[in-house]
Design a protein around this nucleic acid. Structure first.
Lengths: 239, 239
DNA sequence: TAGTGGTCTAGACCACCCC
DNA sequence: GGGTGGTCTAGACCACTAT
């Protein structure tokens, strides 16, 4: 299990820094963040870099920026930031999402007629497959089935993912980052399996997403099929 | 009805240019766009500016960029780009969306207990309210109810919005742009009204969004409540 | 008018992909 | 090795908000 790259860009360090400060309560919802010029001095860098960092914070919905006024910490009450339609990040906001493993990681061939196109390279490597349910305050909210290209990731098979962030695990163990991707979204009726896992009556409407995430390792792609009960929470996206 | 600002930034002109070229078929799905350095020469500008333009194209899902390889026109088959969860744009991709007015524009007071917080300034100005259904190939797909702050927008009341893009209308008539906003997304059951307008059985699952869009005129805010039949199409988002 | 974000220049070096 | 995108510098000027 090797670390696969090196330097963390300055702007990502700044993103992580500001995220942490917001999480720690140094800045509360509605607070104005330091100005871009202040940040330039603080981090000894230039505005292009600072703006790149703040752009990322905006894109994950943590911050809003107003011309002539400043950048402000934004509200995300009841929003499933972790799924932020636009977000590349796990764990935006302070929602206490817990994870239950429904099906442990297993090494399989890629399914026939898989929804997304999988390249030949990935097909040869096979996929690691597992399913999880996410709960919020004890209630199941999300059911997610995940497929990851097995490029030297066998360690997954003996890893207990319970209550672990997949993205953090990939980052910490393999230095693999999410670089981007695409999502498709539908409203559907829960089928028997989904209804059971999310404690819903069958035919309850649920939000369904199919996602394809690209990582910093071009041999590792992540696909996930996801069902979300939006009765008490909603997906949130700001831009 | 006055034009409200002046200069169009270079990067936006480039965005519009490339969009137009893709729409015209100069670049097809999967084609590689010119490199960033080529664009620098072509537009006599620098990479920061070119990248700002391409970032916008990526964010609306039109383009994907790969390190070391280039930027490519991306596929958006069956995707409602017009609603692209992340999109700020009208009319990416499928141009065959037609609009039917369900309720003509009317000048009202802001509703009590409106879902979003409306500032005092906006409350004093009142709101312009109308409802539309969007159809694709003759089938109703989206029902959208819109509220806009009436800051010198009375011309709306005598405008026929049938088959017009709201965003283009705001842009062309008032030079008002969409600058950003937020969206909240649920899966719900169609109620009687929505079912009727979208030709669905009641209790059919539909995607529901509540959106708050900021414009380049800080006195003009747009809110929209929207229901979408995702049986044949899906919302699409790339990042 | 002072302070903020919005846009832009003219370079540079690095990391990645492909031949 | 040559071309691509990824990151960054050290400035500049403009547009918007507030006072």
């Amino acid at each position: 299990m090797g670390i696969r790259s090196k330097k963390i860009p300055i702007y990502k360090q700044i993103v992580a820094d500001i995220k942490q400060q917001i999480a720690a309560g140094d800045y509360k919802i509605g607070d104005m963040l330091p100005s871009e010029n202040d940040y330039c001095k603080q981090y000894q860098t230039t505005r292009v870099t600072i703006r790149q960092a703040i752009n990322e914070l905006i894109s994950i919905g943590l911050v809003q920026r107003y011309h002539g006024k400043g950048s402000y910490v934004s509200e995300a009450k009841n929003a499933l930031g972790i799924l932020s339609v636009r977000g590349v990040t796990a764990g935006v906001g302070n929602l206490n999402l817990k994870t239950i493993i429904v099906k442990k990681p297993e090494l399989l061939a890629w399914p026939d007629n898989f929804f997304f196109n999988v390249g030949e390279v990935h097909k040869k490597l096979g996929c690691i497959h597992f399913s999880r349910v996410r709960t919020l305050e004890g209630k199941p909210i999300i059911f997610e089935e995940t497929f990851i290209t097995n490029h030297q990731l066998e360690v997954f098979l003996k890893t207990d993912l319970e209550n672990k962030s997949l993205f953090n695990f990939l980052k910490n163990s393999f230095n693999i980052d999410i670089k981007g991707g695409e999502q498709k979204i539908w409203a559907v009726m829960a089928n028997e399996e989904v209804a059971k896992l999310l404690s819903l009556t069958e035919k309850h409407p649920v939000l369904h997403m199919k996602r394809n995430l690209k990582t910093s390792d071009s041999k590792v792609e992540i696909f996930s099929f996801l069902y979300c009960n939006t009765e008490q929470y909603y997906l949130h996206d700001s831009f």
